[in-house]
Amino acid sequence: MSDPLFEYLCRMGDNTLVLGHRVSEWCGVAPVLEEDIALANTALDLIGQTQLWLGLAGEVEGKGRDADKLAYHRDVWDFRNVLLVEQPNGDFGRTMMRQFLFDGWHLAYLKALTASSNDQIAAIAEKSVKEVTYHFERSTDTVIGLGDGTEESHRRMQDALERLWPYVGEMFLSDDVDAAMIAQGIAPDPTALRGAYDTQLDGILAEATLIKPADNFTHKGGKTGVRHTEHLGHILTQMQWLQRAYPDATW
C-alpha cells in the first residue's frame, strides 16, 4: 500500500471527481431549466472540491503530480471512489436519489473532518461543508417531493432506492487506511457515523413515503480500488478523452 494519507486524499478527491462528472452529464438535458442549473452548480462545487483534495494529494505524494495529472492520467485501478458515485444517472429520480444517499454521508463526514489534526484537511472540509449543506438540502427536498408525489414519481423513487441501496454500506466501511487516519486524528471513523445517518434517513424516507430495503447487503471494492463496477471505465473514456488522445495538451 502506498502512503495512507495519499490513499485517503485520493478517496476524498475521487468521490467528488467521479460524482461531479456524473452530475455534469445532465448539463443541458435536465427536465426543467432550474434543475439543469442546480445540477450544473452541484457538479461545479464537486469539481472545485476535487481540485482541493487531489491538489493536496499530489503535494503529499511529492512526485510532481498535480490535481489534473491525478484526475486525467490515472486508470480505473488507481481510482478510490466509492461504487455509489460511479453508478449511471438513470432517470432524474435515480440521479437525485444517488445524490441524496451520498450527500447525507458527505455532509456528516465533512463536519466531522473539520476537527482534523491536519490543518489543510480541516480547511478543505470547512469550505466544503458550506457547499454540501446546499446540496443536501436540495436533494432531500427533491426526494421528498418526488417520493410523496405522483404514483409515477413514487414508483420511480422506490425503484431508485432499491437499486442504489446496496451501494450505501461502502461509505461506512473502515479499513487499514481509515485506521491510520483515525490513529493520527486526521479523520473520523466512518463506521461511527452510520447510526446518525440511518436515523436521519429513516425520517426523510418516511416523509417521502418510501420504504427502505430490509437487506443491508453492501457491494464494496471502490474505495479500496480492488473492484470497481464496469461503469467507471466508461466514465473515464469520456472524462479523460482529451488527455488520452493528446497527452499533456493545455490551452
Binding site: E34, E35, I37, A38, N41, T42, L44, D45, E131, Y134, E137, R138
Partner: peptide, 12 residues
Amino acid sequence: ISQFGSTPCKAQ
C-alpha cells in the same frame, strides 16, 4: 424557485 442560480453564489 430554486436553491441554485446563474452563478454558484446565487439562488433564484
